[in-house]
Nucleic acid binder design. Structure first.
Length: 287
DNA sequence: GCGACAG
DNA sequence: ATCTTGTCGC
């Protein structure tokens, strides 16, 4: 898989200042609006996969359709868009403490079912630094996408997109480098302010997240994402909402609509949930 | 100086 | 993210 923007791919030796200015370039290259309206109904996942007996098998015939020569992507090929969830697990060295390598997983969905699994193991370069997550996890994700035969029409990333100090979170970083529509799904809020308090909301509830002073590249008040209650228990309301934001080529509104369509009864959207499980499995296989 | 922040 | 048993509530 060749990158659409190799010029924006970070060099491992960048200083912190250089990483931050690269993020401003990436944000400037990002499109936070809808281009070819990807219909949430076309990517919806109707039933949640059971993980009790391991991961479901990939539907055998589907990937072959996408790898026919001379095709321009999955949608052109079959009319059915491909959604790819990406997530990672971390392997620790035998001494037992420091994370040693990232195990990235990419899981492709079409018609609500898994069509392909891929993974890659990548040595870790820099530690986790809030705001610079993409420099730790971006390359591992690209490696997993490289190992995937399917062409993604939408990437679902585990982390923020536009909800970021410089509007260039992980989902934006990966989406722009690949020039693929992407959304970010985070379990906690990095920056920005919800319009309404998010505690104890019923399933389906959502509220805009607006840029605050921590977002240095946007006018305060700009809608940069949404809090979205993907799941809730009827009586005891203890599930925290997701924080969904556009990565690239998707609006804030479409990003939540797409994620809502990809959720099938669990807190996390199915592509993310299965990518998480596949990353765990791949990590275990290597040990 | 304090705060505060995805995974 | 990761280290981990039980426990409470769907």
């Amino acid at each position: 898989m060749d990158l659409a923007r190799p010029d924006l791919r970070p060099d491992p030796s960048l200083s912190r200042q250089e990483m931050e200015s690269l993020q401003r370039e990436i944000a400037a290259a990002a499109a936070f609006d809808d281009d070819h309206a990807l219909d949430p109904a076309a990517v919806a996942v109707e039933s949640a996969a059971s993980l009790a007996d391991g991961l479901p098998p990939a539907r055998p015939d589907a990937v072959a359709n996408e790898t026919l020569p001379g095709t321009g992507g999955a949608v052109e090929e079959s009319g059915v868009p491909t959604v790819v969830g990406v997530d990672q697990a971390f392997r620790t060295d035998r001494a037992g403490d420091r994370p040693d390598a990232a195990v990235s997983a990419a899981v492709a969905f079409r018609d609500g079912t898994v069509v392909e699994y891929a993974s890659a193991t990548t040595p870790l370069s820099i530690p986790y630094i809030p705001g610079l997550l993409a420099f730790r996890e971006g390359e591992p994700i690209l490696a997993a996408l490289d190992a995937l035969d399917a062409e993604a029409d939408l990437l679902v990333c585990d982390g923020s997109g536009r909800i970021h100090f410089r509007e260039a979170g992980l989902a934006t970083h990966v989406g722009v480098l690949c020039d693929v529509p992407s959304v970010g799904v985070a379990k906690s809020l990095l920056c920005g302010e919800p319009d309404e308090p998010t505690a104890e909301r019923p399933a389906g509830w959502r509220t805009p997240i607006r840029a605050d002073d921590a977002v240095t590249t946007a006018e305060p008040g700009t809608v940069i994402g949404h809090a979205f209650q993907s799941r809730q228990y009827p009586n005891s309301r203890r599930v925290n909402p997701l924080y969904v934001s556009p990565g690239h080529r998707v609006s804030a509104e479409s990003a939540v609509d797409l994620v809502a369509a990809l959720c099938a009864g669990y807190k996390l959207p199915e592509p993310t949930r299965l990518a998480d499980a596949h990353a765990e499995r791949a990590k275990g296989d290597a040990e």
